[in-house]
Computed example of a mutant assay.
Amino acid sequence: MRVPAGDRPREARGGRGRVVEPPQRLWRRLGRADLRSVPEARRELRELLRDWGKPGRSEIAELLTSELVTNALVHTDDDAVLTAVLAPGGLRVEVRDFVPRRPRVRTPDPDGDTHGRGMVLVESLADAWGVRPHGVGKSVWFELGAEAA
Protein backbone atom coordinates (compact mmCIF):
# COMPACT_ATOMS: atom_id res chain seq x y z
CA MET A 1 0.00 0.00 0.00
CA ARG A 2 1.49 3.32 -1.03
CA VAL A 3 1.25 6.44 1.07
CA PRO A 4 -1.66 8.61 -0.19
CA ALA A 5 -0.52 11.38 -2.51
CA GLY A 6 -1.60 14.09 -0.09
CA ASP A 7 0.64 12.58 2.61
CA ARG A 8 3.72 12.31 0.42
CA PRO A 9 6.44 14.97 0.38
CA ARG A 10 6.78 17.11 -2.72
CA GLU A 11 9.33 16.36 -5.41
CA ALA A 12 11.57 19.00 -6.94
CA ARG A 13 12.72 18.46 -10.52
CA GLY A 14 16.22 19.04 -11.74
CA GLY A 15 19.41 17.41 -12.99
CA ARG A 16 19.25 13.69 -13.76
CA GLY A 17 15.74 13.18 -12.47
CA ARG A 18 13.89 14.01 -9.36
CA VAL A 19 15.30 15.23 -6.10
CA VAL A 20 13.51 13.45 -3.29
CA GLU A 21 12.49 15.48 -0.27
CA PRO A 22 12.57 13.17 2.75
CA PRO A 23 11.09 10.73 3.20
CA GLN A 24 8.94 8.82 0.76
CA ARG A 25 7.50 5.57 2.07
CA LEU A 26 6.05 2.32 0.89
CA TRP A 27 4.13 0.25 3.42
CA ARG A 28 2.50 -3.08 2.61
CA ARG A 29 1.00 -5.88 4.70
CA LEU A 30 1.93 -9.27 3.29
CA GLY A 31 -0.55 -12.10 3.82
CA ARG A 32 0.64 -15.41 5.20
CA ALA A 33 2.15 -17.59 2.45
CA ASP A 34 0.80 -15.24 -0.24
CA LEU A 35 3.65 -15.44 -2.73
CA ARG A 36 1.70 -13.20 -5.11
CA SER A 37 2.89 -10.44 -2.77
CA VAL A 38 6.46 -10.82 -4.04
CA PRO A 39 5.98 -9.42 -7.57
CA GLU A 40 3.46 -6.87 -6.26
CA ALA A 41 6.01 -5.61 -3.72
CA ARG A 42 8.66 -5.40 -6.44
CA ARG A 43 6.32 -3.40 -8.68
CA GLU A 44 5.44 -0.96 -5.90
CA LEU A 45 9.10 -0.54 -4.96
CA ARG A 46 9.99 0.03 -8.62
CA GLU A 47 7.44 2.86 -8.72
CA LEU A 48 8.87 4.39 -5.53
CA LEU A 49 12.42 4.22 -6.93
CA ARG A 50 11.66 5.54 -10.41
CA ASP A 51 14.57 7.83 -11.41
CA TRP A 52 16.46 7.01 -8.18
CA GLY A 53 20.16 6.25 -8.00
CA LYS A 54 22.77 5.18 -10.45
CA PRO A 55 21.86 2.57 -13.06
CA GLY A 56 21.32 -0.82 -11.49
CA ARG A 57 20.71 0.38 -7.91
CA SER A 58 16.91 0.14 -8.08
CA GLU A 59 17.18 -3.33 -9.62
CA ILE A 60 19.40 -4.43 -6.73
CA ALA A 61 16.83 -2.99 -4.31
CA GLU A 62 14.05 -4.94 -6.04
CA LEU A 63 16.04 -8.18 -5.92
CA LEU A 64 16.90 -7.82 -2.24
CA THR A 65 13.36 -6.83 -1.34
CA SER A 66 11.97 -9.89 -3.09
CA GLU A 67 14.43 -12.08 -1.16
CA LEU A 68 13.38 -10.63 2.21
CA VAL A 69 9.67 -10.82 1.37
CA THR A 70 9.97 -14.39 0.10
CA ASN A 71 11.90 -15.47 3.20
CA ALA A 72 9.30 -13.94 5.50
CA LEU A 73 6.41 -15.62 3.69
CA VAL A 74 8.03 -19.03 3.19
CA HIS A 75 9.95 -19.51 6.42
CA THR A 76 7.64 -17.98 9.03
CA ASP A 77 4.16 -19.24 8.08
CA ASP A 78 2.70 -15.94 9.26
CA ASP A 79 1.90 -12.43 8.01
CA ALA A 80 4.66 -9.87 7.46
CA VAL A 81 4.95 -6.13 6.88
CA LEU A 82 7.15 -4.48 4.24
CA THR A 83 8.34 -0.92 4.79
CA ALA A 84 10.60 0.99 2.40
CA VAL A 85 11.79 4.52 3.17
CA LEU A 86 13.49 6.61 0.50
CA ALA A 87 15.38 9.63 1.81
CA PRO A 88 18.23 11.76 0.42
CA GLY A 89 20.77 9.47 2.11
CA GLY A 90 19.44 6.35 0.42
CA LEU A 91 16.93 3.57 0.77
CA ARG A 92 16.06 1.42 3.79
CA VAL A 93 13.86 -1.64 3.31
CA GLU A 94 12.58 -3.60 6.28
CA VAL A 95 10.46 -6.74 6.41
CA ARG A 96 8.93 -7.44 9.80
CA ASP A 97 7.54 -10.84 10.65
CA PHE A 98 6.17 -12.36 13.82
CA VAL A 99 8.57 -15.27 14.33
CA PRO A 100 11.66 -14.62 16.47
CA ARG A 101 13.90 -17.14 14.63
CA ARG A 102 16.71 -15.27 12.87
CA PRO A 103 17.49 -15.91 9.20
CA ARG A 104 20.62 -17.89 8.45
CA VAL A 105 23.24 -16.94 5.91
CA ARG A 106 24.15 -20.29 4.43
CA THR A 107 26.78 -21.19 1.93
CA PRO A 108 24.75 -22.56 -0.95
CA ASP A 109 25.66 -25.89 -2.45
CA PRO A 110 26.89 -25.13 -5.99
CA ASP A 111 25.50 -28.46 -7.20
CA GLY A 112 22.21 -28.06 -5.32
CA ASP A 113 19.05 -26.11 -5.93
CA THR A 114 18.65 -22.37 -5.49
CA HIS A 115 17.40 -22.49 -1.89
CA GLY A 116 19.57 -20.78 0.69
CA ARG A 117 20.96 -18.07 -1.55
CA GLY A 118 18.70 -15.18 -0.57
CA MET A 119 20.55 -14.00 2.51
CA VAL A 120 23.89 -14.47 0.74
CA LEU A 121 22.63 -12.02 -1.90
CA VAL A 122 21.51 -9.57 0.77
CA GLU A 123 24.85 -9.84 2.57
CA SER A 124 26.86 -9.33 -0.62
CA LEU A 125 24.82 -6.63 -2.40
CA ALA A 126 23.45 -4.40 0.37
CA ASP A 127 25.50 -1.51 1.73
CA ALA A 128 24.33 -2.57 5.21
CA TRP A 129 21.88 -5.12 6.56
CA GLY A 130 20.83 -6.68 9.81
CA VAL A 131 18.19 -8.23 12.02
CA ARG A 132 16.39 -6.33 14.76
CA PRO A 133 14.36 -8.29 17.33
CA HIS A 134 10.91 -7.08 18.35
CA GLY A 135 8.72 -8.10 21.26
CA VAL A 136 7.04 -10.54 18.90
CA GLY A 137 9.20 -11.45 15.94
CA LYS A 138 11.91 -9.53 14.14
CA SER A 139 12.70 -7.13 11.32
CA VAL A 140 15.23 -7.99 8.64
CA TRP A 141 16.47 -4.86 6.89
CA PHE A 142 18.93 -3.60 4.31
CA GLU A 143 20.15 -0.21 3.17
CA LEU A 144 21.36 0.99 -0.21
CA GLY A 145 22.81 4.33 -1.17
CA ALA A 146 21.89 5.88 -4.50
CA GLU A 147 25.50 5.54 -5.63
CA ALA A 148 27.27 2.21 -6.08
CA ALA A 149 29.32 1.32 -3.01
Rank of each mutant, 00 (worst) to 15 (best):
M1Q: 12
R2W: 03
A5N: 06
G6R: 11
D7Y: 06
D7H: 09
R10W: 08
A12C: 05
R13K: 09
R13Q: 11
R18Y: 05
R18I: 10
R18G: 08
R18C: 04
V19L: 13
R25W: 09
L26Y: 04
L26D: 05
R32W: 10
V38F: 06
E47S: 14
L48M: 05
R50P: 02
D51P: 02
D51F: 11
G53D: 06
K54Q: 15
P55E: 10
P55H: 07
S58D: 12
E59M: 08
E59I: 08
A61I: 02
E62C: 10
L63R: 07
L63I: 09
L63D: 07
S66V: 00
E67A: 01
L68Q: 00
L68Y: 03
V69S: 02
V69R: 01
N71V: 01
N71T: 07
A72P: 02
L73P: 02
D77Y: 10
V81D: 12
T83A: 12
T83D: 08
V85R: 09
A87I: 01
G89D: 13
G90S: 07
G90K: 04
L91S: 00
V95K: 00
V95W: 01
D97V: 01
D97F: 03
F98I: 05
F98V: 08
F98N: 00
P100L: 06
R101N: 04
P103L: 07
R106I: 13
T107P: 07
P108Y: 01
P108R: 02
D109I: 05
P110L: 01
P110Q: 02
P110H: 01
D111K: 13
T114E: 11
H115M: 11
G116E: 00
R117C: 09
G118P: 02
M119F: 15
V120M: 14
L121W: 04
V122S: 05
V122Q: 04
E123I: 07
S124H: 15
L125N: 04
L125I: 07
L125R: 09
D127L: 06
W129F: 14
P133V: 09
P133F: 04
P133G: 06
H134T: 14
G137N: 07
K138H: 10
K138L: 15
S139L: 07
S139V: 13
V140Y: 03
V140T: 15
W141E: 04
E143L: 08
